[in-house]
Simulated assay, not measured.
Amino acid sequence: MKAQISIIMPVINEAAQLADKLQALQALRTRCELLLVDGGSSDASPAIAKPLVDLVLPSQRGRARQMNLGAEHAQAEVLLFLHADTRLPERAAELIMSAVAQGAAWGRFDVQFDSPQAIFKLIAYLMNARSRLTGIATGDQAIFITRQAFRAVGGFPQIALMEDIAISAALKKIGKPCCLKAEVVTAARRWQQHGILRTILLMWCLRLRYFFGAHPDELAARYYRRL
């Protein structure tokens, strides 16, 4: 039976948590294929993934480049781009296929964080509300796209940062996103490691600069320098 959804996961040096994350996806393999695209890990990520996915693809580093490579090798007509630190909700595949059957060319899930702190509930609420208002999805929300729509916009632009915002803007010209209320759970570790307020302010600053035309390479340099 041909897979209905190709789940594409870009990774680099995720060995510490990768086995658990991939084990959680095994039940979906009756209707989904799993593709892991490794961006040059120096740890055991590819070896850990090999028995737990349908295909491990070596790639140059860069999330957009990795996801585009995964899409090139995907067999299904629906592509789901999943970060390694994001966990899908129950019935994720059914929800996606139902949305597509009703005419959605693309969409995303609501998001919550794996932390009980109230600040993370607020951040998630604001992320979801902003996404509904603007029609822009973030990678943390597990973006799904039909193959036809993905080809129509030329895939993810080969930029160092903001590739999720850029492809959302392109996809909006095809149709509004399907904003599924079911929640993916994403890791709060980045925010906790680097400071919650500091990370919020940095991301706001980067998004604003991108909106006003700053080059993604410049933004990426600032992002990785600050973190």
Rank of each mutant, 00 (worst) to 15 (best):
207 R>V: 05
125 Y>E: 14
122 L>H: 02
192 Q>R: 08
195 G>W: 07
153 V>L: 11
149 A>I: 05
147 R>N: 06
142 A>E: 07
200 I>D: 13
209 R>F: 04
187 A>N: 07
202 L>N: 08
150 F>Y: 12
176 K>Y: 14
123 I>Q: 03
129 A>F: 14
187 A>S: 10
195 G>V: 08
133 L>E: 01
207 R>H: 06
154 G>Y: 11
134 T>C: 02
125 Y>H: 13
141 Q>W: 11
183 E>H: 04
188 A>H: 05
182 A>P: 08
216 P>D: 01
126 L>Q: 10
180 L>H: 03
210 Y>V: 01
199 T>H: 07
207 R>D: 04
210 Y>D: 01
171 L>N: 09
203 M>S: 15
204 W>F: 06
120 F>L: 01
204 W>P: 01
190 R>C: 15
201 L>F: 09
122 L>I: 07
148 Q>C: 05
139 G>R: 03
129 A>R: 13
190 R>N: 14
148 Q>Y: 03
205 C>A: 04
200 I>S: 08
202 L>E: 04
220 A>W: 09
212 F>T: 06
151 R>I: 03
175 G>T: 11
132 R>N: 03
219 L>A: 08
214 A>V: 03
193 Q>E: 10
218 E>T: 06
148 Q>T: 08
210 Y>P: 01
129 A>S: 10
207 R>I: 04
221 A>E: 06
185 V>D: 03
173 K>Q: 15
185 V>S: 05
206 L>H: 09
193 Q>W: 07
200 I>T: 01
126 L>F: 07
154 G>N: 10
221 A>I: 09
174 I>T: 07
210 Y>Q: 01
153 V>S: 05
156 F>H: 01
164 D>W: 14
135 G>N: 03
206 L>D: 06
184 V>I: 06
174 I>P: 03
155 G>M: 07
202 L>G: 05
121 K>V: 08
161 L>M: 09
184 V>G: 00
170 A>V: 09
149 A>C: 05
221 A>D: 14
174 I>S: 12
175 G>D: 13
125 Y>I: 08
166 A>D: 14
162 M>P: 08
217 D>M: 05
146 T>D: 12
172 K>S: 11
199 T>A: 10
130 R>A: 10
157 P>T: 01
152 A>C: 00
212 F>V: 02
210 Y>C: 01
214 A>Y: 03
159 I>D: 06
136 I>F: 15
189 R>N: 11
120 F>M: 02
133 L>V: 00
218 E>A: 07
175 G>F: 14
220 A>H: 12
123 I>H: 04
